[in-house]
Structures are given as structure tokens and as C-alpha cells.
Nucleic acid binder design. Structure first.
Lengths: 211, 211
DNA sequence: CTAACAATTGACCGGCCGGTCAGTCGATGA
DNA sequence: TCATCGACTGACCGGCCGGTCAATTGTTAG
């Protein structure tokens, strides 16, 4: 029905995109040359220009493709957690953490993009943060979470902690006493969820909390 | 007493180092050329080679200089908090946060280095994390902090949350409902410190904490 | 005063950079 | 069967890349 294996434009584009993703994620945009992109994708340099115009064009396409995947996946995750039970936030954190764990190269890609002040990143982040903050706000209104903290700050706190965990994953081997991904997640959840529990009127916890 | 303004090797090296810091922090190693480094520092390209050998040589020198500053400053901060009072961890977080706030370009530099898998980074991080974890462990032994969490995970949690906050600072303008640096710090400390408070035997907080 | 030395310069190098273009090749529709 | 169109190639371009080197200049020790 379709074109044969040779001269399949879609397949070629996909191969170039994959090579681009690999190399850009590994070395960053500026450190990758069109020549190595060509070698890696198994096509001619000219063919990359034919399909994507310029090096920036390919970079944009790579980002767009990765973004679509990430955004889609993450939105599904957030929507899947719509059931209004008490563990909503906890499950949200776990899902986000697992997503990052399953997509370590996405973490690298977004870090490169942040450093290059890519606007696409901030738009998506903004939407997801807003979505998460809304959930937190509703949980606060129901009395399920303490309400003396900014919902956006709650979301950014766990996003920050999880993202940076995987951003520094390479080095963890040399950090003495550090645990596995799941052990960190477990400890983080203890701190995070207990820290977010509704405050007792009988305000017990003193000691360390006040300097 | 010393050499005049012209032909001052130390001053020249310093100027080149500063230009290198500016440009590398802004665009990353690969995206900076020797020519623009020369223009920025107001000297000849050859002179940079004379003083630093290669482009990598300058990059190493820039990193080393920044590292020395960072490491020194941060160690001072940690040692300054040696008084064994109850707010030790809280003050540690505040000091770390303030350091990052005062040195936003260091945050960018270290992010570039992380992406390039620079080993120097991990060595310093490793030492600081170990130092912080030791403090947490001692606080746990004294019953000032909950002891059912890995001390290293406690330290990485706040380091991660703070670092990433400043790493994404550029975008915060478009995140609705987000507060200032200090407001975030305040909210983070509420969650973090209350989450780390010693557990009551009468374990009250249920609801959200269990999925 | 001058020899010695380091700081500094500008011309120059081969090579790789991103990008272009004329042309070949192969599938497809009339 | 053949014209058409797009996938694909390889030779080529000017320019910038990091780096070298011989020569000049300023400083300083003897």
C-alpha cells in the first residue's frame, strides 16, 4: 500500500529526528555538527537540509517532537489522577517522579532548553504548574492540605525536587549514603506530605521549626 | 610599587577570566568562540592562548575560579551555622537559598557543568552533601528531627528544591500565582521543617498522607 | 645602558562549519 | 510509456573555527 523501505520520506525524517534527539540531548545544540548528525542518521547532510531547512530547523523539530510526547504523557497522568480522593497529591508526585525516571533524556533536553532560555519550555511548564496548583488549591479548600502556603509554591517544590534529582543522577554514585530513586521518593514523600498536612490548632511541633 | 596598568599579566588574566565567565555562563562552552572572548576581554586572541593555552584551558580556569569562590563561600556558610541550636537546619536552608540568590550566574555555570558531566562538580557537591547530611544525622540523634528518613535525602531535597528554583527563575514571570523568592522560601520552609518535625507517637496526621 | 625575558600583536594555517545547487534516481499517475 | 515530482546525492562555497608563530614592545635585573 505505502512506499517501500527505500525512499520513504517519513521514515527518513523519523531517523533524522531520532539522531538529532540523541545528539542534541547528549551534547547540546551548539556542540553538534550537521556532519555528525548525517553520519548518525545514515543519510547525507544535504538530505537533512532538504527535510528540515537549517540546523535550527532540525533542533526546533526535535524539541517539538519531544515536547508533544512529554506534554501529552504528563497531561494524561494529571488527568488520570482526577478522582478526588485524599491521596491525589501524593499520587501526582509519584506519577511525575516516575515519568522523569522513565524519560531521563527528556530531563536533559529540558535542561538544555532552560539554559538557552527557550520560551516553549516556560509555556508548557506554566500550564502544567497552573493545573497542579489548581488541584492543590481545591484540596486546601476541602481541608485536606494546610492552607497557609501558596499552591503554586507547593507544586514547584515537588517539581523542583524531583527534576533536580534526575538532573544530578549521574553523580549520585559518589554521594555517600544516598539511596535509590525509590528510596529517595519515599523519604521525600514523608517530608512533603507530612509538611503539608493540615495544621493542628494545638500547634505541637516546635523545637526545630523556629530559629 | 607594582607594575603599571599596561602590560600587567595578572590584570590581563583577570580580565580574560571575567570575560570567559560572562560568556560561558551565558551561552555555554561550545557556543563561545575565541574571537568573541578576545573582543570581550579587550585583548588579542593570541594573548588568551598565551595565558591559558587552549579554549579548554580557559574554560577550566574559569570553572576553577568560580568553584573556589563558591566552595569557599558555601563552606563558610556551613561552618558559620555550627552553633548547635534548634534552628540549625532551617538556617542552613536559608543560607543556601540566599547564596544562590546572590550568585545566580553560579547556578547557571554549575548547570552547564552538570550537563557536560563535569567531574569537579560532583566532587564538591559530594563533600557539601556529606557535610550537611552529617549535621542532619546529629540533629536526628538528638531527637530534633524525625529519624525515619535518610539524612542525605533530607539534604538533597532542599538543595534540589532551592537550586531548581533559581534555575527556572527566568520563567517565573509567566507562572500565575507564583510569589517572590522570599515568599517561596517561606512556604518551602513551612513544608520542609514541619515535614521533618519528630513524629508524634499519637500519629495524628492522616488523610492526605496515605494514598 | 643593555641583555634578557615576558607580555602582546597580527598575519597566517589547515580544517571544519552550515549551507547551496545542479543533477541523479525512483516511484507514481496519466 | 513517459512526464512529473520529490527524495536523495556529492561537489562545492565562503567564512569562521581553534591554534601557531615570528616579530615587536615594554619592563626589569644586572
Amino acid at each position: 500500500m505505502n512506499e517501500p523501505a527505500t525512499r520513504d520520506a517519513e521514515l527518513t525524517r523519523a531517523r533524522i529526528l531520532e539522531a538529532g534527539f540523541d545528539l542534541f540531548v547528549e551534547k547540546g545544540f551548539a556542540a553538534v555538527s550537521m556532519r555528525e548528525l548525517a553520519v548518525r542518521s545514515g543519510v547525507t547532510k544535504s538530505l537533512i537540509h532538504h527535510h528540515f531547512g537549517t540546523k535550527e530547523g532540525l533542533w526546533d523539530a526535535v524539541k517539538e517532537a519531544a515536547f508533544a510526547r512529554y506534554y501529552e504523557g504528563q497531561k494524561d497522568e494529571l488527568l488520570a489522577a482526577d478522582a478526588p480522593d485524599a491521596g491525589l497529591l501524593r499520587n501526582g508526585v509519584i506519577r511525575y517522579f516516575r515519568f522523569l525516571k522513565d524519560n531521563p533524556r527528556a530531563v536533559r533536553l529540558f535542561t538544555w532548553m532552560h539554559l538557552e532560555r527557550d520560551s516553549t519550555c516556560s509555556e508548557m511548564d506554566s500550564e502544567l504548574v497552573a493545573l497542579g496548583a489548581d488541584r492543590v488549591r481545591r484540596a486546601q479548600e476541602r481541608g485536606l492540605l494546610r492552607d497557609d502556603v501558596n499552591p503554586t509554591h507547593v507544586v514547584t517544590t515537588f517539581i523542583n525536587a524531583c527534576s533536580q534529582w534526575f538532573q544530578t543522577l549521574d553523580q549520585h554514585g559518589s554521594w555517600e549514603g544516598i539511596g535509590s530513586d525509590d528510596e529517595f521518593l519515599e523519604d521525600f514523600l514523608k517530608i512533603f506530605m507530612d509538611g503539608l498536612a493540615p495544621q493542628d490548632a494545638s500547634a505541637s511541633h516546635q523545637g526545630i521549626t523556629k530559629g
